[in-house]
Amino acid sequence: MEKLKACFDFSDLPRLDLTIAGLVLSALLVFPIFPHSSYAMSTVIQFFMFALYGMGWNTIGGYGGQVDLGLAQYLGIGAYTTAVSMIRWNTPFWVSMPIGVVLAIIWCFVVGYSVFRLKGHYFAIATIAMSLVLKDVFEVWKFVGASRGLEIPSTRFTSPDFLHLVFTNDTYYYCLILAFFVIGLLYINWFRKSRLGFQLRSIKDNEEVARSLGINVQWAKLKTYAVAVTFVSAVGSFHACYVKNIEPEDTMSLDLSILIALMAMLGGAGSLWGPIIGAGILIPLKSYLKEWLGARAGLVGIDVVIYGAIIMFISAVEPRGVWGIVQRVRRRKRA
């Protein structure tokens, strides 16, 4: 009960933040009512998905300071669990999604047990390596369609199918992912003020000191990793139903892992709003880059170049991203 109340307790944040957040959320709520292109709709859905991936990354990467560049592997686990079980056994999304989460958590303990002993760059590289190994397995694994991937036969279901999330009208997907988004945000709001949230910030600061305060560093990281992959895997399952066509390349690639990390890093790692701001900037940018510069001007791969530039920019100017700049301006005003 105390936990539930804490989810809704935003009282430590400035009123201005909450006003802006409220306005943005209201705008997003009424967005489908107004006329819009399907391009805009898919961009907003992607925004929610990536904000959620970013929130997941932010737990371990932002609050915990463990820069993971392999989270896409859990997106793949979620997406493939849902796709495979839907195609082979007609399993409803609401069953396959939790199963995907459980598989993702089991796998994250395997990965985490070995990589969390590493520090800094070694940790980041190890997460990349584990992720690429898993992707390679999926590329050759016949059961999951190998490199050609899987296609969910949407004709088998009649839209709107709320059990299997097969809709011809994207507004349904929109409402669903919006609900996920709100739940995710409330959860993170609890998480950041929970015991684990405090322990993580202590670990990020200095592991030696964290240990001296009775914190089991390895276990705290593993628990947080489980939280992170729950976010990513659950939304990965949604991704499968929404896109209906999945391959290892677009569910587990390094590009995707980096993009997930960038959401929080650009917006502000270790802050509540960070991943949302990051997704708000990067997803429209990504659509634009892919659609216009990539497809029309023939600048294939330009998006990756831009992400690289953003990473360099963040590390040079403000490691805490856009939110860090906002905080700095605020501090200066108060002083």
């Binding site: 322990q199 990020k204 305060l213």
Partner: peptide, 30 residues
């Protein structure tokens, strides 16, 4: 419990949050 000779406390946490990290050892309740 021990303290450290060289420990530049983090710029990330407030004083109260720092102390709370210690307090969370005995309780899970915020």
């Amino acid at each position: 419990t021990r303290t450290f000779q060289i420990y530049a406390a983090s710029g990330d946490l407030t004083v109260k949050e720092n102390v709370m990290v210690g307090c969370f050892m005995k309780t899970g309740s915020r």
